[in-house]
Nucleic acid binder design. Structure first.
Lengths: 203, 203
DNA sequence: GCTTCCATGTAAGAGGTTACATGATTGG
DNA sequence: CCAATCATGTAACCTCTTACATGGAAGC
């Protein structure tokens, strides 16, 4: 199974509702897993019937009631077994990289646009992650927190996410700039006949 | 659809058999997509019946015959449409990060081991990617190649993959060292009673 | 003789995505 | 009044993974 351990790992931090997890999967937990709300609700229901988590109803005023979940002892034991198993190699699947791979054969304009958008999104996420890190380590400095703080797990995954987003942003900007420059050069040489599809004059 | 555009992008480089793609998905193309051999054979068959690629039989001596595929004009048009569409945000799914997220609640030993293994795997991949980059740029320097070379797409995706693997390796090593140190401190304080599960003396 | 490499698949089942549904409350 | 937020799902479909199958040639 797959999502299940990511959900359990997220719930080790404390009690969360499906809705909160769905939001949280955009920031902290999104550094190691990605899931849609429907998936989370379904997985929470399954985990509860299997006794790995328990939910309690929380009555709210002015807004719908919610169910908060926490990991049971059985859930923790399942996590223990999961951690002891060999990890599968991670994998990336990224539409945008597929487009960059193909950029020499197709129009570069949309690729450049999408690289720029992605870089901006990375910037936004970097800001969020930096704030989250400050919050996680409380008053302490990073080295001190990592040596003596409790719950370094979430901090370490956030550090990984932050490094990833920074690399992503820098690469996107560099690739976008480069492709723009090449497109400009090509326009200069093309003089009406050349297209983005590599049919440059004389080959 | 998903794999299909990754396969088309890979085939823009030249002719490949399913077997070669299955190997290649370990190095260059693996930087943006991950797929198993069965998936590739199935996808190639589908793409061929839809006319987006064509295969030709190549008879070999001393080994089984193979079918090499290349992208058709229709396939290129499909790629053009794909590139023009908005890209979905990329996502990571990594068992190992899930384990690190949970490390404060479970035994840290296996996590440290797996982080070390992952770092070693990253080292191996970094070597492969560096060689691939040298090969792709031929005699030229990187900046020169990126400005004037043909087919910068594959080069750019490899650069991204290389940066990713380096970050991954550094983070794994740092996290492993840190968790080892914390485990040693805990053993020193525990004197027989404390386990890895956070039940330290006096809380 | 055993293993590895080349080369290609099938079938079943787990997991993930897309589209759609509901209903109350707060803010512009 | 319209949109967004909170809160939770169902159903159909697509995609991916796991397990298994085949068969010849080369290397130890």
């Amino acid at each position: 199974m797959a999502l299940r351990h990511a959900v359990l790992a997220a719930l080790l931090d404390g009690e969360y509702s499906g809705y909160q997890l769905a939001k949280g999967f955009d920031i902290g937990v999104a550094n190691f897993w990605h899931a849609l709300p429907q998936q989370l609700y379904a997985e929470l229901a399954k985990l509860e019937t299997e006794g790995l988590i328990t939910g309690r109803e929380v009555v709210q005023e002015g807004r719908p009631n919610k169910r908060l979940f926490r990991v049971t002892d059985e859930g923790l034991a399942e996590m223990e077994r999961f951690v002891a198993r060999a990890a599968k190699p991670s994998f990336i699947r990224d539409d945008l990289l597929v487009k960059v791979q193909a950029v020499d054969g197709v129009a570069a304009g949309p690729v450049i646009e999408q690289l720029t958008e992605r870089a901006d999104m990375a910037d936004a996420k970097i800001e969020l992650l930096e704030k989250l890190l400050v919050k996680l380590r409380g008053g302490a400095g990073e080295d001190e927190f990592l040596r003596t703080g409790e719950r370094v797990g979430p901090y370490l995954t956030c550090l990984r996410g932050l490094a990833f987003e920074r690399e992503s942003r820098d690469w996107c900007r560099r690739a976008a700039a480069l492709l723009s420059e090449r497109a400009a050069v090509e326009r200069g040489r093309g003089r009406g006949a050349a297209s983005a599809r590599g049919d440059r004059p004389l080959g």
